[in-house]
Design a binder for these strands. Structure first.
Lengths: 181, 181, 181, 181
DNA sequence: TTTT
DNA sequence: TTTT
């Protein structure tokens, strides 16, 4: 049973960092990957692939990427469903990120920020703190610091169907030392 | 720009073979991939990943797999959207198959068919011939024999947003000679 | 920086399980993957890809596979070099397995063993215990139980150039409970 | 039977473009992929992965990359062997590129060239024209323009064991129109 | 024999 | 040195 995805593309917006009830971080973002062929009108389309990343990696990801960032993503396809406010079942397909890499130099990234007026990477953007309940990401509930990405026998989201984000709005304050790159 | 998926799993049902207006074959199917970890209740869940395969490969796929078949899939994630009958935009994420392999011996497959009463692989199941209009797969329209899977510069579906299946119901009659395996 | 490999193929021989000086298990094996095209003589060739797997997974792998087993392998390409007995530098390219799956039912596997006279999977083959020094796999040396496959920031072999196998010949005696599948 | 590789890394040198007896282009290059963990001395090592690319793609690749270029590579692992001049069998493991992407902007690339005195991408570097016989790449011999990368049933090198490069030194003169990106 |  |  194999489920492996590799993407290289650009973020369509700043990643959205949230917290589960139990305090686990989760960032969601969309990667635009240009197709390597053109359509009948001669235009190159793109696929817009929804992704999530959990735990410490979520914080790193959110603090060091922004709209337009070129990223490499390794992970797996996850499907899940939830009931929306109208009582309909909604089916979701997304990529659970198990590893990522930043494919732009800091110079390039700064050049981007200069043009777009974002904060510098040494002063990471304030992450979202608002609570919210409508988002259907299933949150791991066994998460007293033990969350493990990329371990062979317990990747990702252990409870795909549970309600997730009740957003306690706790701030993180990560330092350079914590970075995986 | 990289967009690569590899799956190994089992079909949740017989593949559904259809035809576009212009006569291109397309098979759709769902692969169940067991997760390699268990949830909090100690159960192993699975991801149910929607896939399509185009052209001659669609016919091969439909004729040599069935519910329960163990298959390997290589492809890319495609996102597209369409308007449903209620006028709402529906977003779809699926895997466009560029290569597949059958991971069961004919013996295994026959054993399955014996237990489930399906047709033998030497007498391929009759493919679906009914027309239908509600299915939102974008069909390639430049498909006078020129459809190419897995070619570097024009993979997959060249017109992701167009209406697809008006199902002309033409029969295919493929022979053993045409098989890629 | 991405380095991702997925293989599905058959073992060309029983996996070879050894131990490093510090007692870490490592299994090496070769996966034959048939090409999906034929050569000019009309024959289908195969690629024979050398792989290693470390730690507990090595023991599981060795005990539940054998010559001919159909396996799925996820990992990364590793390159390393060592000096051989003639004083020449030898370059090695191999796949470091981070995750694997057995793609045959126990029934299939038993059928194979019945025909080939191997031991049953409930009575795992005795692993190799002989010491040996000529094999150039770099062994992790921080391995007091802390070896981690598939963790995001410290996969695999942490000391790729060091001498490895002085084979202490310690026996393992794993039980069903330890299995990742 | 699946054999899939994705790499993102930097070229360790300019790609080496050669020609087979029958005039097929082939470029060889090495991709350095930094590991995402450090060794015991706290240093980050890299894997140096040998790759080839055939046909028109070889020419594109050679003309638009150089030492240091950040590239994405999709392909498969190929193993082959040849007899060297001392009469010993040499085993080779390399990645056959089926698709690639340039992950640096033209600006970045030009910046590099400005600093290193290379030719501009609009005036592609003169490819190697010298003949040579010692290189053991097996050359496809059915290559009267019919060479196909990335087609499902006949990828890559159809004659993996034959002597390859007798280098006829024919010049190519590709134009912008031919580029796949 | 290795890249930033 | 290779597997079904």
């Amino acid at each position: 049973m194999i489920n492996r995805v590799v993407l290289v593309g650009r973020l369509t917006r700043d990643p959205d960092l949230r917290y589960t009830n139990s305090g686990t971080s989760v960032a969601s973002f969309t990667v635009a990957v240009d197709r390597n062929f053109t359509n009948q009108q001669g235009n190159r389309e793109a696929d817009f692939i929804n992704c999530v990343v959990w735990g410490k990696s979520a914080e790193n990801f959110a603090n060091f990427t922004h709209k337009g960032s070129l990223v490499g993503i390794e992970g797996r396809i996850q499907t899940r469903s939830y009931e929306n406010q109208q009582g309909n079942r909604v089916y979701v397909t997304e990529v659970v990120t198990e590893n990522f890499s930043l494919l732009e130099s800091k110079a390039e990234s700064d050049r981007y920020r200069a043009q777009h007026g974002g904060s510098a990477s040494s002063a990471p953007r304030q992450q979202s703190q608002s609570s919210f309940g409508g988002n259907p990401y299933g949150a791991p509930t066994n998460n007293q610091g033990s969350y493990q990405q990329d371990n062979a026998y317990g990747n990702g989201n252990n409870d795909a169907m549970q309600d997730p984000f009740a957003g306690n709005g706790s701030k993180t304050d990560i330092s350079e030392d914590d970075l995986p790159f």
